[in-house]
Amino acid sequence: MTAPLDPLDPLDPLDDLAAFRRLAAAKLGSFAHTTVPDAPGLRRAGVVLCAVEHDGVPSVILIKRADRGRNAGQWGLPGGRLEDGETPEEAALRELHEEIGLAAGSADVLGRLDDFPAASGFAITPVVVVLDDPGPPAPSPDEVQSVHHASLRRLADDDTPHWVPQPDGGSLLQMRLGPNWRVHAPTGAMLWQFREVVLLGRDVRVADFVQPDWTRR
């Protein structure tokens, strides 16, 4: 699978972080993201789709959450709930630093994707960040069990998204990023929209994606 390239840019954004930055800025700049409206009981969170160079190729950071607390043991993106007065972008960048020790500023944010209405009662805002030289992650043991990297090329591969039929007639998305690595919505839905909108240039939405029952906790 090859990402669409700018004809004036000879570098492949799946293999070059600077080329990916240019591609992502262009795609997100023209993407009309949706925002979940305020409602009684709605809580908000921000997460980061953070692209860095890992093992010589552009990759997105994922985490496996600690085996205690909210979302124990689940795959996720660095992020968390908004504090009073924060924007989703501010909360996402703060949590990126608190959870895995990486510092990013507003200049590193290229844009955002659709809010995802999680079954847990959160509206999750994904922001896309590129860091050229972030240094090694330093995960907080209270929140993060481990840090992982999914290459952009793996995200773009045809065999990464799998749709599993459900008894009610719907389909459950699994982003199969490696052996025994299955990421479901909400995180899987945000990764899929990132893949489709930024890497493949398609205008898609994900708010109605099926979420496993265990994500409601």
Rank of each mutant, 00 (worst) to 15 (best):
D84K: 14
A45S: 13
G46P: 05
V57D: 00
A51Y: 03
G85D: 03
A26F: 09
G29D: 04
A19W: 11
A91E: 00
T87M: 03
G85Q: 06
A72G: 08
V52P: 06
D38N: 15
D15I: 08
T87C: 02
L14A: 02
A91G: 03
A66E: 07
T87P: 03
G41I: 09
P4L: 14
P88G: 12
L93I: 10
G56L: 05
A66V: 13
V60R: 00
T34F: 11
A91F: 00
L42Y: 05
G46M: 10
A19Y: 09
L14Y: 00
E89I: 06
T35M: 12
T34P: 07
P37C: 09
D38P: 12
A66K: 13
V60D: 02
T34M: 14
A92R: 06
F31N: 00
R94G: 06
A45M: 03
R21M: 07
T34A: 15
T35W: 09
E90K: 15
L17S: 01
R70W: 12
L93M: 11
R94P: 09
G76S: 15
A26R: 15
D84A: 14
L42C: 03
L8V: 10
K27M: 10
V57S: 05
G76H: 13
F20Y: 04
D38A: 14
A19T: 11
V47S: 02
T35P: 01
R44Y: 03
H54W: 10
D6T: 11
A51N: 08
D15Q: 08
A92H: 06
R43M: 06
D55T: 00
D38K: 14
V48M: 01
G79D: 08
G29C: 09
P58E: 01
P4E: 08
L42V: 06
I63K: 06
G46R: 12
G76M: 14
S59C: 05
G41M: 07
D55S: 12
E90T: 13
L49P: 02
D16W: 06
H33T: 15
C50E: 05
G41V: 07
G76P: 10
P4H: 08
S59V: 06
L82C: 01
I61C: 04
D16F: 07
V52H: 01
P7Y: 08
A51R: 09
D9A: 11
R68K: 15
R81F: 09
G80W: 01
V60Q: 02
G73E: 06
E86P: 03
T34L: 15
A66H: 13
